[in-house]
């Protein structure tokens, strides 16, 4: 897809009005249909091909301005979005909370409205407060894409995870995926739970009891509850499992309340090389950044069955797909 005409093929293929996404914003994957998720993954596959070409950009979002509004420190997600935007030829503005008007006490609404007054089409937002992206949709007319809000959702992470799993297995339906770690504080776990169960996988949530939120069994609607299993034992989570997705542990949560120590965490919930030897087909994933020797033994991080770097590559493709498909919402709105 090195020529403009080829990239136009992508555009024609994806602007069929009968196949537009149902949502104008990407706030979370709760409520997204299998059709819409699959559509994002299919389009991401096409952009993945673009990323393998010598010239890795297409003009799809030329003239579209995207602001990356990051209220939480983030390296990987911000760079991934920024690359995706640039490879779609969008104009990109970065806003990080440190050193900006936020430290002078401006409200989120005012910041967003000021930025929008500079004629912005799409906002990618990362915020520590759950619900901040939907709050933004009430402040501005731009299309809002959630890049992680509190412990609520991180939809593009789950989409890139789904893409990586589908790439590996050729399907998601019927797979068994275990999500292991700090479920309570994890937006990655919530988004993955929604996406994977919608696509037909069975999901096991595993972690120390003090990091499992209350009523976890009721996170999904009744019709999907049979697809979810909860355990505090790693061996139960790994036995018969196709994909083990380890979550990052926040070091500051050890100690007083949530878990005793990183050492004990690794012993009880860390994935070791022996696990990969016992479970011969097990695939390991991690949203990064990895604490080596905590969630994953360092040999596991570098193992051929760890797909962590594939996830990163797919992250750019999935975000290109999301930005591209959601930009339709911007056009319809005008």
């Amino acid at each position: 897809m090195t020529t403009e005409s080829e990239s136009e093929n992508v555009q024609q293929d994806t602007t069929n009005p009968d196949e537009g996404l149902r949502q104008r914003h990407l706030l979370g994957l709760e409520g997204w249909s299998a059709r819409d998720i699959t559509r994002v993954l299919d389009t991401a596959g096409q952009f993945r091909d673009v990323l393998e070409r010598p010239i890795r950009s297409v003009p799809s979002l030329r003239g579209v301005t995207v602001v990356n509004l990051f209220y939480e420190p983030s390296t990987r997600t911000r760079i991934s979005f920024e690359l995706a935007e640039k490879r779609l030829s969008a104009d990109v503005v970065n806003f990080a909370s440190s050193g900006s008007s936020v430290s002078k006490g401006e409200t989120l609404r005012d910041t967003a409205r000021n930025i929008e007054a500079m004629k912005i089409d799409m906002v990618v937002v990362r915020h520590a407060s759950a619900g901040a992206p939907s709050f933004l949709t009430r402040c501005v007319d731009a299309v809002v894409i959630n890049a992680g809000d509190g412990a609520h959702e991180h939809p593009t992470q789950a989409l890139l995870d789904a893409m990586t799993i589908r790439e590996q297995f050729g399907r998601i339906q019927g797979l068994r995926v275990s999500i292991i770690g700090d479920i309570m504080h994890s937006r990655v776990a919530r988004s993955n739970l929604h996406a994977l169960t919608t696509l037909g996988a069975d999901v096991t949530l595993c972690g120390p009891a003090s990091l499992l939120p209350v009523h976890l069994d009721r996170l999904l609607g009744e019709e999907a509850r049979g697809q979810v299993r909860i355990t505090t034992r790693l061996d139960e989570a790994l036995d018969g499992c196709d994909v083990a997705m380890a979550l990052r542990i926040q070091m500051e949560r050890q100690g007083r309340s949530l878990f005793p120590s990183v050492r004990e965490y690794h012993e009880q919930f860390g994935i070791q090389l022996e696990h990969l030897e016992t479970y011969k087909d097990l695939i390991v994933m991690h949203p990064g950044p990895v604490n080596r020797g905590v969630e994953l033994a360092t040999d596991v991080v570098d193992h051929e069955r760890a797909l962590i770097l594939n996830q990163v590559t797919n992250g750019v493709a999935v975000r290109m797909s999301v930005l591209y498909l959601m930009s339709d919402g911007r056009k319809q709105h005008e």
Binding site: G131, D149, A151, H152, R190, V214
Partner: peptide
């Protein structure tokens, strides 16, 4: 209740908001 913002329960778990038990 160190830092909660809504009732701790099914809804807070879904919304990802820290709960007040």
């Amino acid at each position: 209740n160190p830092h909660g913002h809504m009732n701790e329960g099914e809804v807070s778990t879904r919304l990802g908001v820290k709960g007040i038990p």
